[in-house]
Design a protein around this nucleic acid. Structure first.
Lengths: 338, 338
DNA sequence: TTGTAGGCGTTATCAA
DNA sequence: TTGATAACGCCTACAA
């Protein structure tokens, strides 16, 4: 079951491997007849270039890397299945491959993982998401000269291609929507501190309150971790307040869905007693009960475009634009009905 | 920003690259003092072996492949985020990497993908899931001599390592539970035909009916595709029957959650008017409203064990056992309450 | 238009 | 215990 190499093809054709290589790669300086013979025999013999040998010679791997921010051992988040699908699609479209691993954000394991990939020249470029305000990955990768693109931004003074959502404005809009429906005591269950996501969405929350002339009550802002459980626990804390919130915003859909469960357990009705809204616009939100009001972002497309962007950069294409800021779409459903 | 190579380290140490290589790889025939010096200098210089060169020489890549069965463009399924996290964890633990891509099952794109990976010797082994009764991947990979492991089995006469759930017995148990609560008109929303999953779970459904002495009414068994949408549409069909089902089983949690939405839209209450149950035991099920009765399988652990199994096979370890059949755990929640 | 030869960075074989 | 040398499979100056 030895794989057939370019040597075998050359031998069979009584040609040099050089000619075979060039014929297959479509170089112009090959006789049409020769090229034809080569194509035929190569296909017949089932020859496919050895990816590794090619990588070594070309000094690039055509592999993109992506690290899942696996919080705990378990990591159940539909967002990332969609994100990975998008990355895979984008990579494949350009003949690239996608390497995936998992690491808890800001741990030694994460640093080791990126370092291994970079130092051993395993990947040509990296896609980042769940950006942090002071993201060591950005500093590290730009220092190492490894191209990367990101879903989101940082506070660091480093320029790189990104696609970001204007989630600050988005959340503010959501608050406005809630206020418009008469909710005035609005809670917020956030994301881990230090993440750009949290900075933006939390700021949007305050913007929204301010615009509506509502006070910012720190009791109403609690911590979350972007999981169901975090949302559930955050909501429980909010429900222990002497004066209950009338609406709760989750930093993402999972958080919001977790919060809904806490509310239901308390015997209250989501959308009537307490409004709930999320962020992401996953299928989970559409199928929650009641269906969840949310800010929708195009997860799959964003991931695909990120892969495109990174590959464009890797293949030396001139990018006319490499900063993209998109607006999330407010989708109003029964969870903020009234 | 040229990476430091083994040559640089050898030059600096005034040793041959051979010795450096062997010292770093922990071969015994190296003087302790030399090894120490080498380790020190290599670390100081930040030397990391070039993965690609090593791959070429060793004639293996230490990369595992996994293809997401992306049904549509979008692919929102928490099951797979957890599955990939498990694979990544297992791979990393043994110094392996994980290559991920997406393809629609049983399409040319899928065949091309596997072929590319295999022929170009990009991956050493492959993890399969969502097995089909007559799975071309099994035939192909075993013919090519590429090691693989699978989450589930096939009807083909090929022996390979797998971890499977006894979902047939599981579903039968679930039917028994439903019957015990007085539900007698039980519908089933299935998976795509040709999948082992569908064969097993559908058989379990019939087993359960038979054991309870209930008739098998073909109207009550409808098709699904393991997505929210499929569950939603399947349930709508069931709700159009002249005589409504009193319970609905979804082939997975997503299907069940989609079905719940259809039931709610119809103004009926899940768990009171119609019972619903799923399969997988994802977080989504725990946080559905009402919480979803389901058969739980250890997704993360199974994936991790599959990676372990495949790597054991790749590294030539003697496996004392390579067929595992696990029992899913019935988790009873309010969606089948009464 | 085709062939020769060198090298990508490692590891393995064999000799010293 | 160490070193010289030859691959691994491919690509690409350069020569023919």
């Amino acid at each position: 079951m030895m794989a057939v190499t370019i040597r075998d093809v050359a031998r069979r054709l009584k040609l040099s491997i050089t000619t075979v290589s060039r014929a297959l790669d479509g170089y112009p300086d090959v006789a049409a007849a020769t090229r034809h013979r080569v194509d035929l025999v190569a296909k017949e013999m089932g020859y496919v270039p050895n990816h590794v040998a090619r990588q070594l010679r070309r000094r690039r791997t055509d592999i993109l890397g992506f690290v899942l921010p696996a919080t705990a051992g378990h990591f159940s988040d539909a967002f990332f299945s969609e994100f990975i699908a998008g990355l895979g699609e984008g990579a494949t479209a350009h003949g690239f491959e996608l390497l995936v691993s998992t690491a808890q954000p800001d741990t030694d394991a994460e640093r080791q993982l990126y370092t291994r990939w970079v130092q051993s020249r395993l990947v040509d470029g990296v896609v980042l998401n769940r950006m942090r305000l002071h993201d060591w990955r950005v500093a590290y990768l730009s220092h190492e000269g490894i191209p990367f693109v990101a879903h989101g931004r940082t506070r660091l003074n480093v320029d790189f291609p990104f696609i970001d959502m204007d989630s600050r404005t988005g959340i503010a809009l959501l608050v406005e929507h809630l206020v418009g429906r008469g909710y005035r005591r609005i809670g917020y269950i956030g994301a881990p501190p230090g993440t750009t996501l949290q900075a933006d969405r939390s700021a949007g929350y305050r913007d929204g309150l301010r615009a509506a002339g509502l006070p910012f009550d720190t009791c109403l802002r609690v911590r979350g971790d972007l999981t169901h459980r975090g949302g559930y626990e955050g909501a429980r804390r909010l429900l222990e307040l002497p004066e209950l919130p009338t609406a709760i915003i989750g930093a993402n859909d999972l958080t919001a869905i977790g919060a809904m469960r806490a509310i239901h357990e308390r015997g209250l009705a989501v959308g009537r007693d307490i409004a709930v809204a999320g962020y992401d616009g996953t299928e989970d939100a559409a199928h929650a009960q009641p269906p969840l009001t949310t800010l929708k972002q195009p997860i799959f497309d964003t991931a695909k475009r990120l892969a495109d962007l990174l590959i464009a950069r890797l293949t030396g294409q001139r990018l006319e634009q490499w900063h993209f800021i998109m607006k999330p779409e407010l989708i109003i459903r029964a969870s903020t009905g009234r």
